[in-house]
Design a protein around this nucleic acid. Structure first.
Lengths: 164, 164
DNA sequence: TGTATTTATTTCATATATGAAATATATGGT
DNA sequence: ACCATATATTTCATATATGAAATAAATACA
């Protein structure tokens, strides 16, 4: 019995009151919300010693996962699932902390390049053991086959959500 | 090919650079983030004609799914996955709109009761067709057996996340 | 070339969310 | 009854996120 039980109870009541209400889709959507909250809060707690937030961590990791450690704000917005106005703010914060460098692009002068700095790389190396441990713990309850199956189904779900 | 492909590419680079980085857990976490964003944005767009946000909708639906249409702020915080300070603000907004009523509890005078008003119930009946259509569309790509399997695996994942 | 349109980013006002302190009531032990 | 502690909610300062307008450069094409 987990914290989701009351949610299921409420969905049962809702279905009784609204016969057209589709239970299964609603369960999935509420599960995604609960999962996201847990993941977000746990990441923030883990990263607190380094003085960065989960969204800031995501920006760093998007750059880290890119050949050349560099992306434009618009690529970063797409990659990190943030609005571009928010990327500006997050990039400002990371530049202030010396973790990211902002340079004008030569080829297209509308563009801006955001690159991981030496300090940014060093910080990633520092928090990586804690992050790896966190990720391992979070999926410790799932067998490898279940993880793979979950990945497959979530991708299918995401593909559908992107249709609209 | 969906919008998640670049994310996978970045994870591959990350794994190359950090051999200890656990790919599978990271994929799941990033999928949850992408899914949450899509669900949140789609719900906000659907609800816009009624002048309420997705978090406000969630509050209304938590009350709707409760016998007696009434919960305390703390129950609501747990149910909706919001911090209690945020519940106060959301409840204020919903009270201002006349959708929720706030009354002091008699039994325990520290407590407050938040109840769906007649107008709140009426609004739920109004937006319900749009919400049902949205939910159906969002899961249209999944077969019933896949939906059931996904529900099972997400619950298992959530249970694990709640261990810490 | 000149100018309209599109693309990239930032600015700014506003909306939304959080932690910590403040307020008020309840409960348990003496 | 009294006081210490626990619980429920709100307040307030601050952090975080968004939409729309502003800015600036690239592109299309008459």
């Amino acid at each position: 019995m987990n914290s989701f039980a009351p949610t299921e109870q409420r969905l049962a009541v809702t279905c009784r009151r609204q016969p057209a209400f589709p239970r299964e889709p609603a369960v999935l959507v509420r599960l995604v919300k609960h999962l996201h909250k847990r993941v977000h809060d746990a990441a923030n707690a883990t990263l607190k010693p380094w003085g960065i937030s989960h969204p800031e961590y995501n920006i760093l990791m998007m750059l880290y996962g890119t050949e050349g450690y560099t992306l434009n704000p618009s690529q970063l917005a797409e990659a990190a699932g943030e609005k571009s106005a928010n990327i500006t703010r997050l990039a400002d914060s990371l530049c202030d902390k010396g973790l990211v460098e902002r340079t004008a692009s030569d080829a297209d002068r509308r563009k801006v390049s955001l690159s991981l700095s030496r300090a940014g790389l060093a910080m990633i190396d520092e928090f990586m053991p804690s992050i790896c441990a966190l990720l391992e713990r979070q999926t410790a309850g799932l067998k490898p086959a279940e993880t793979a199956q979950l990945e497959r189904l979530l991708k299918k779900f995401l593909t559908q959500l992107e249709q609209d």
